[in-house]
Computed example of a mutant assay.
Amino acid sequence: MGKLRETSLYKAHERHGGKIIDFSGWALPVQYEGIKAEHQTVRNFAGLFDVSHMGEVEVKGNEAFDFVQNLVTNDVSTLKDNQVLYTFMCYPDGGIVDDLLVYKFNRNDFLLVINASNVEKDFKWMMENIGSYDIELANISDVTSQIAIQGPNAQKILQKLTDEKLGEIGFFYCKRNVDISGANCLISRTGYTGEDGFEIYLSHEDAEKVWNDLMEAGKELGLKPAGLGARDTLRFEASLPLYGNEISKDITPLEAGFGFFVKLDKENFIGKEALMKQKREGLKRKLVGFEMIDKGIPRHGYDVMADGKKIGFVTTGYAAPTLNKNIGLAMVDIGYTKIDTPIEIKIRKRILKAKVINKRFYTKNYKK
């Protein structure tokens, strides 16, 4: 573990009995009391996540808006100040560099929140595409901690530590300079679990105190720390993608079923031509949900079969804790994407029956 990077909350994870693993070079807890228990805690009460490994890049300058608008697939012109947007960065061939959140503070000031495993690659990509834009990019990942509190009791718990009226912060909005337990924070209300909740961006120096104060404030409201394992099962049930699974350099947003976040009618963005061509010619494969009929748990990378041939691969699979079913997401040939289509999953040497179902496994409980 000596070579792994530690977040500002590493001691807190040790204190709570977190099982530490290597995640993209970071020493992070995969679980504390157990993935299923933590999953249900978030669904029913609230869970506290250390997501300090995520990347943050500031974009500032006279042409910050123009740069970001060209960089991402979604339409940044729809954002009000202090609003947040989910989107993709694509390569010219339509493959995905990363999925990210765009925070707009004003037309000349943005924050891009990117995946931990992609920070260096993403920042290099942004730098390569500055061109003549009058902007400055700053990778502030190394000086920023991030805590996420997620679950139906998240607002009640966080409200104990701030005078800010959290009920006035809408879904996919943010606010800067919020005092939480004496720390100056940026907070947002987005979530990666299917539940309501907040993200708290703050300095490394303040992170452990805020974490401890949140744990104390949430003691009687069921709050517990949650690890990466539950984070993955929660996002999977809510059909939210994970880079390297549902989305990658070899998968386009259209194939992954996220065409809503690709605005082909906006003036231009990197990858637009390739995605327009793909839409015009029609998809050859697509991401689907599936449910196991035979007994077996599908896993990432397993082959999907039909009619005696391989038709795709599993991107994520689990025994879903909330649904109590063995389900998965898979990228399959377009002829096998209709609901109720029979398919098979190759689990080791066994070929097991499954069927295509709606990807909306879990009804999301976000703030409206």
Rank of each mutant, 00 (worst) to 15 (best):
V102L: 04
A226K: 02
L79S: 07
G197H: 05
Y362F: 13
T190G: 12
T87A: 02
R299N: 14
S77I: 02
V57I: 13
I293R: 03
P152A: 00
I187E: 14
N268P: 13
T41L: 02
M276N: 15
T41P: 14
L100T: 10
F23A: 04
E195N: 08
E273V: 04
L48N: 14
L214R: 02
R231F: 11
S117K: 02
G301T: 05
F67C: 05
T190E: 13
G257D: 15
P92D: 11
E6W: 04
G257F: 08
F45N: 14
A148M: 13
N358K: 01
F198C: 06
E273A: 09
V178R: 02
L4V: 05
V304F: 08
I21N: 12
G194P: 15
G95A: 00
V178L: 06
F23I: 01
L254G: 14
L100Q: 12
L28G: 13
D99R: 00
S248A: 09
F313G: 12
D206R: 04
F261P: 14
I169Y: 10
D109N: 12
F172Q: 08
D303I: 00
L352K: 06
A274Y: 14
Q150L: 05
Q40V: 01
E33Q: 13
F258Q: 05
S132E: 13
G222M: 03
G17D: 14
R350Y: 13
V288D: 14
V332N: 07
K368L: 11
R189C: 09
M54L: 09
I96R: 02
Y173Q: 10
K156V: 02
D265C: 00
I130Q: 14
D196G: 10
